[in-house]
Nucleic acid binder design. Structure first.
Length: 292
DNA sequence: AAAGGTAACAACCGCATCTTG
DNA sequence: ACAAGATGCGGTTGTTACCTT
C-alpha cells in the first residue's frame, strides 16, 4: 500500500511541485465530478499523479476554503493551546482553525515553535518548554490580539525605537499556579475594552491543570471580538509605562512550581516581536539565560 | 554581486485505519 | 470474516525565497 511506485514505471508518475496546468486540471475535474475516489480521479483526470498526491494538493492548496497567508495571533494562540492539550494531533487541531490545514499547522509548529526549543536546547515536548510558551509567548500573542481589537488609530506613546534605553519588567506571581485560567477570567463579561496590560488579573483557580482553557473558553477564544482580557495576564505583570518589548527582566524564582524547577529568566533586548504583522520571533536566545 | 545559510512552505512517504466487495 | 484497496495522519524531505556576510 502506501505510495509505492516503482522507478521506471511505464505510467511515469510525476512528482514534485504542481504546475498551474495540473492545478487547473485537478480543479476542473473536481468541479465536475466532486472529490473523493482519489486513485480513480488521478487516472480519469489525465494527471500523471498518484491519488494521494491529488488529494494532498486539493486539500492543502486548491480547495476554495483554504486560507492563505500568515497565521493571525489568534490562530497562533489557538495552536499553542491546542497542541498543549492534544500534542501532534495536527488534523484535530486544524479542525479548530477553519481554513487552515494540518500541514500548515504542522509546518508552523516545526519552523517557529520548535525552533525556539532547539535554541533553548530543551525538548519541545518537555514541561519546561510548554511552560515557557505559556508564560512568555502566549501572553504576548494575547496582548497583540488585544491591541488589534482595540484598533486605536494613534500609535503608542513610546514606540520601541530604542529598546535598549528603556526597561520593562515582567514579574510572575509568586506561589501561584502558572496556568491560569479560569472560566471566570475568560468570561469577558462586559463590552468595556479595558485591556490595560498593567493590570494584574488574579487567578481564580490556581489549581487549574494542564490546559489553560475550558472548552467553553475555547469557544470564546474563537471569537476575536470577545477578547477583552488577557487570560494569561496573571502570569506576568507589565509595567505599562515602560513595556516596549525591549528589555525584559523576568524573575520566576520561588514560584511554588510543583514538579517544575525554579526558573530565572533574564532577557535583555529581547526580540519578542520583530514586526507588526506578528511574525513573532519569540526571543533572542543569545540573550536568554535559563538557570535551574 | 555572489556565496552560503536559514526559514518557510510544499510535497512525499510509510503506516494505521476505514471501507467495500 | 476477510482481503484488498482507499483514505487519512503524522513524520520527513525537498525546494525556493530571503537574509546575511
Amino acid at each position: 500500500m502506501g505510495g509505492s511506485f516503482n522507478e521506471g514505471n511505464s505510467h511515469e508518475i510525476k512528482r514534485g511541485p504542481w504546475t498551474p496546468e495540473e492545478d487547473n486540471l485537478l480543479v476542473h475535474y473536481i468541479t465536475c465530478h466532486g472529490e473523493g475516489r482519489w486513485n480513480s480521479l488521478a487516472k480519469s483526470s489525465g494527471l500523471k499523479r498518484t491519488g494521494k498526491s491529488c488529494r494532498l494538493r486539493w486539500l492543502n492548496y486548491l480547495k476554495p476554503d483554504v486560507k492563505r497567508g500568515n497565521l493571525s495571533p489568534h490562530e497562533q494562540l489557538l495552536i499553542l493551546e491546542l497542541h498543549s492539550k492534544w500534542g501532534n494531533r495536527w488534523s484535530k487541531i486544524a479542525c479548530q482553525l477553519p481554513g487552515r490545514t494540518d500541514n500548515e499547522i504542522k509546518n508552523y509548529w516545526r519552523t517557529r515553535v520548535q525552533k525556539q526549543a532547539r535554541h533553548l536546547k530543551i525538548d519541545s515536548n518537555s514541561k519546561i518548554f510548554v511552560e515557557t510558551l505559556r508564560r512568555f509567548w502566549m501572553p504576548r500573542l494575547f496582548e497583540k490580539i488585544e491591541q488589534n481589537s482595540s484598533s486605536s488609530p494613534s500609535p503608542p506613546p513610546s514606540p520601541p525605537s530604542s529598546p535598549s534605553t528603556s526597561t520593562s519588567t515582567i514579574k510572575t506571581h509568586q506561589n501561584k499556579s502558572f496556568l491560569p485560567q479560569t472560566e471566570q477570567t475568560l468570561m469577558l463579561s462586559s463590552s468595556s475594552s479595558s485591556s490595560s496590560s498593567s493590570q494584574v488579573v488574579e487567578n481564580k483557580n490556581p489549581n487549574s491543570s494542564s490546559s489553560i482553557f475550558s472548552s467553553e473558553s475555547m469557544a470564546m477564544l474563537s471569537q476575536d471580538s470577545n477578547l477583552k482580557t488577557n487570560p494569561y495576564s496573571d502570569c506576568y505583570h507589565v509595567d505599562n509605562n515602560n513595556f516596549d518589548m525591549g528589555f525584559i527582566h523576568l524573575d520566576m524564582q520561588n514560584r511554588g512550581q510543583g514538579d517544575m524547577s525554579a526558573l530565572e529568566f533574564q532577557m535583555a533586548e529581547a526580540d519578542w516581536m520583530k514586526n507588526d504583522d506578528l511574525d513573532i520571533t519569540f526571543w533572542n536566545m543569545d540573550e536568554l539565560h535559563v538557570a535551574f
